[in-house]
Design a protein around this nucleic acid. Structure first.
Lengths: 235, 235
DNA sequence: TGTACATCAGTGAACGCGCGTTCACTGATGTAC
DNA sequence: TGTACATCAGTGAACGCGCGTTCACTGATGTAC
């Protein structure tokens, strides 16, 4: 029967998710390198070999966590950016950047898994590429929209674009920065790296004994970064 | 005899360094989490327990590697920045930033050890603080020098400084940014995080299939960042 | 210079642990006639 | 609706591995008189 068949499949899907959730919790205490199939099985009251019915190996479990991580942070940023009027570009920018950091602070090990140092011995498969670009898509969209509306006013401190950047810019236009001229694409990408640099610096401990009011400082920095790409102050 | 006593001590120092070097090589293939005292001992032809004469635990070995890493990258950046005339601030800036990236590309796992996601279960002791600021000291010095010479001309896109930043700026002045006004300190710190963000993005794989000419793009970005803090173009 | 003693480096065995993965198996759940 | 068969989930034992750390020990290197 079709209903019962989906019933079995539903149980399977649920257990698969439960395993991933448990693994995610372990990630939060042990880090990616310490993630262990046996420990996950133990906590779920299964025997370790049973997990292999759901994930053929430890690396596949890691891959699932990475994809989930990209999707979770992508969804958080998308949702945050949707909270403002479409033409409030600085507002969308600040909201998206804040959501990025908030999510990272709430899920430090998941953040480290996807944006931190690579897990030794693990090679990310191609399936992770799509979800990886969700955050970039949100930030890129804001810039593209502003550009299309003629609301992008970058200050005139541009350095010479590197020679071979043309094809890169074209690829960025096709994926996350529709309609952006080369120099806007170059600047957007750098800004993107800067935002992640800020979050990583804070999360990985480089702001220890350096920055006190981290909320305020982050807002200050991402607002400044927004201005460098030409997203003027909203208020 | 004093000579023979130093002879024994010299052997000890040499073996200590040899252990650290071997460990560093292992770091480069296994990553920090996979660093194993036994593997290091094996490669050196010692029995594993012998290593304990030199490092009381695995964590102490890690600490030594972290300190060495900070010092190595600090020395590389210092040396590079010394290659230009003192008043060539953009030149010193570019040289220092390039050296930072070059070192990171040549020693990716050491870079990850000090600037990447924290090693799970490892708590960095206080001794790592000093060496950690050598790179910041070089970059900060360039900015302070330019400021003192009246050669710092930041563009007027400053956002409002966060309220609690005063004491942070004071601490930065005392350590790595002598004489820098609050807003310069805030901007310098953000720039610093941006530079590391760029290097980390490249090293941790986020520029895969995105940036082709990475040398050129890096130069472009750090030059732009230099202009944002007011280090005008040198030529 | 020579001897008695203390310090140190390195050995080898052991403790107790956790890991990923395989495999033959028992039942339970679903499918086809 | 009922029965025979196939699929699947979960079990428990095992393989072979590597790890950090401790400990009693043997020699060699240094020190003091």
């Amino acid at each position: 029967m079709n209903a019962s068949r989906t019933a079995r499949e539903r149980v399977r899907a649920e257990l698969t998710r439960e395993i991933a959730d448990t693994a995610r919790r372990h990630l939060a205490t042990e880090g990616a390198a310490g993630l262990s199939l046996r420990a996950v099985a133990r906590e779920m009251g299964m025997v370790s070999s049973a997990v292999y019915r759901y994930f053929p190996s430890r690396d596949d479990l890691l891959t699932a966590l990475i994809i989930d991580g990209y999707n979770a942070i992508g969804a958080a940023v998308e949702e945050a950016a949707a909270c403002c009027r479409g033409d409030d570009y600085p507002g969308r920018w600040l909201a998206a950047c804040r959501a990025l950091r908030t999510w990272a602070l709430a899920h430090p090990h998941e953040y480290a898994l996807v944006y931190g140092s690579p897990v030794p011995g693990y090679r990310a498969p191609a399936q992770t590429i799509g979800p990886a670009s969700r955050v970039a898509a949100v930030l890129g969209r804001i810039i593209s929209d502003a550009q299309a509306a003629g609301a992008l006013n970058p200050p005139g401190l541009r350095a010479a674009l590197p020679g071979g950047f043309g094809p890169d810019a074209e690829r960025l236009r096709e994926s996350v920065l529709p309609g952006a001229p080369d120099d806007v694409a170059a600047r957007a990408l750098a800004t993107w790296a800067s935002v992640f640099g800020m979050v990583s610096f804070e999360l990985f401990g480089q702001f220890e004994n350096v920055v006190t009011d981290r909320d305020g400082y982050y807002d200050y920095v991402v607002t400044s970064l927004g201005r460098v790409i030409g997203l003027g102050a909203g208020g």
